[in-house]
Simulated scan of single mutants.
Amino acid sequence: MDRSEFGKRLKAVRSNVLKMSQGELATELGVIQPLVSRLENGLGGTIELLFEIVAYFYQKGYPAYSLFYKDFNIEEFKAVSHTKLPKKIAANVGEGLTELKSFLTAALENTQSIETLLKLEKK
């Protein structure tokens, strides 16, 4: 799946399942509307925004993982979304996503540091 396909899926869920505007979703995620627009239009976003979206869907009881299925189906997503996750499970998922986000952020910082060192070494 590429960025464009993910954006189409996100837009379908936002408008058809959540019944929200881009601005409303942005407010829920703590970001500005243009970031949601960029993601929906396949122009990219940040890994942090992706984690926020996944965490938000889980908090609301939606199967965020299914957005990444090869054969994503909005009708199946709608059907599954009516079964809310127990709060304890949703909280654990949120904690796990927070840990994963921290790990990936640290990995990205380390990668950038290594790239900087390699550039200095070449000079």
Rank of each mutant, 00 (worst) to 15 (best):
10 L>D: 07
33 Q>P: 12
23 G>E: 07
31 V>Q: 02
46 T>L: 06
35 L>E: 10
20 M>C: 07
32 I>N: 12
36 V>M: 07
18 L>R: 01
34 P>R: 05
16 N>S: 09
16 N>Y: 10
48 E>T: 00
38 R>P: 05
30 G>A: 04
17 V>L: 10
14 R>S: 10
49 L>H: 09
25 L>M: 15
16 N>Q: 13
55 A>P: 02
25 L>H: 07
39 L>K: 12
28 E>K: 13
41 N>E: 12
24 E>S: 06
39 L>E: 11
29 L>N: 08
52 E>Q: 06
21 S>E: 06
23 G>A: 03
20 M>K: 11
29 L>F: 02
46 T>G: 11
9 R>F: 06
9 R>W: 05
37 S>N: 14
47 I>H: 11
20 M>F: 12
25 L>T: 03
14 R>H: 14
48 E>V: 04
40 E>D: 01
19 K>F: 11
32 I>G: 04
20 M>Y: 12
24 E>F: 05
52 E>L: 14
10 L>W: 05
52 E>I: 03
41 N>L: 09
11 K>W: 13
47 I>S: 01
31 V>Y: 07
39 L>I: 12
30 G>Q: 02
28 E>V: 10
41 N>Y: 11
28 E>M: 13
22 Q>W: 01
55 A>K: 11
56 Y>V: 01
39 L>V: 13
23 G>D: 06
14 R>E: 06
41 N>Q: 15
46 T>M: 13
20 M>V: 00
21 S>A: 03
43 L>V: 06
47 I>W: 12
28 E>Q: 11
9 R>G: 03
23 G>T: 06
35 L>D: 03
14 R>Y: 08
22 Q>I: 00
13 V>D: 02
37 S>D: 09
56 Y>Q: 07
24 E>N: 13
56 Y>S: 03
51 F>G: 03
20 M>G: 07
40 E>Y: 01
10 L>Q: 10
15 S>F: 03
44 G>I: 08
28 E>W: 12
44 G>Q: 08
44 G>W: 15
52 E>M: 05
36 V>D: 04
49 L>Y: 07
9 R>Y: 02
14 R>L: 14
25 L>E: 04
47 I>K: 15
38 R>G: 02
45 G>H: 08
13 V>K: 09
25 L>I: 06
18 L>T: 01
42 G>H: 09
12 A>S: 13
31 V>H: 02
29 L>I: 09
30 G>L: 06
23 G>Y: 00
18 L>F: 01
32 I>P: 00
41 N>F: 08
33 Q>Y: 07
11 K>L: 15
13 V>A: 10
27 T>W: 10
39 L>M: 14
30 G>P: 04
30 G>C: 01
34 P>T: 00
44 G>V: 02
15 S>I: 01
12 A>Q: 08
38 R>D: 10
33 Q>D: 09
17 V>M: 04
52 E>V: 04
34 P>H: 00
52 E>N: 00
24 E>M: 08
52 E>C: 00
18 L>Q: 00
42 G>K: 11
53 I>M: 14
51 F>K: 02
34 P>V: 02
